[in-house]
Design a protein around this nucleic acid. Structure first.
Length: 231
DNA sequence: CCCTGATTCGC
DNA sequence: GCGAATCAGG
């Protein structure tokens, strides 16, 4: 298997969406999770909570040098760290998007300085790919979940006529994917969104459900990015 | 044991 | 560039 554009796209989308390497690996099929991780790194995607990465010093010194001098006692032994700054910075910065030449819409650019403090209960949502997403109030602002990248050529085929293509996506239409990318009739729902959400009311119903049962292994719902093609 | 991601290194 | 082997924490 080789890393085609489409597979790389899927990898990025899933990786940034918080999927584990294993999940991505067998969603793609034909690659090991190691391959996925390797590729992700080569792509510069990274920066994800890893269980293994702390290499802070302090591990070495500990090993008892029988003779005193347990610690040089750096200045300020017990001073508690200063109060944490507010800065509610969402960690993953999905890299600045380059493609966005769209003429300014006639409405406000929506700097949205004030975040609507949505009293979201601890509610996880499961996206169209069957993967867990953050609740809108929790972290991800009501923005496009998938990279606003150009996946598909403009409107190559007549089949696309009347369909909502990637290019038609904007902040107020439902981005629920229908079909698989690459397939001739792949398009998006296109309904008017449920304000504050990336999907229309109906699809929000699908997207946002309490994640109740055990975190079982991948359910088989259709992936939005052309999941495990037949192997 | 299982899982996870990170790194290395021969190809 | 690729990914198996290996490492290492949870």
């Amino acid at each position: 298997m080789s890393w085609t554009d489409e597979r790389i796209e899927t990898l990025k989308t899933m990786w940034e969406g918080g999927q584990t390497a294993s999940q991505i690996a067998d969603a793609l099929g034909g690659v090991s999770r190691n391959a996925v991780i390797g590729k992700a790194h080569r792509l510069g995607l990274q920066a994800r909570p890893s269980p293994v990465k702390s290499h802070d010093a302090a591990t070495a010194t500990a090993t008892a040098t029988a003779t005193s001098e347990p610690a040089p006692t750096p200045v300020e032994p017990v001073v508690v760290a200063p109060p944490p700054p507010p800065a509610p910075t969402p960690a993953p910065a999905p890299e600045p998007v380059a493609v966005e030449e769209d003429a300014e819409e006639q409405d406000e650019p929506a700097p949205a300085p004030e975040r609507v403090a949505a009293p979201q209960p601890v509610l996880r949502s499961v996206g169209p790919g069957g993967f867990v997403r953050q609740s809108p109030g929790e972290q991800q602002p009501p923005a496009t979940p998938a990279p606003p990248r150009r996946l598909v050529p403009a409107k190559p085929s007549p089949e696309m006529a009347g369909k909502t293509s990637l290019l038609d996506l904007n902040d107020r239409i439902c981005k629920w994917p229908l079909g698989h990318p690459g397939e001739p009739d792949f398009h998006f729902c296109g309904e008017k969104v449920n304000p504050g959400f990336p999907y229309c009311v109906e699809h929000c119903g699908h997207a946002y459900q309490a994640q109740m049962p055990r975190r079982d292994r991948r359910p088989p719902p259709p992936l939005p990015f052309g999941g495990p093609r037949v192997r």
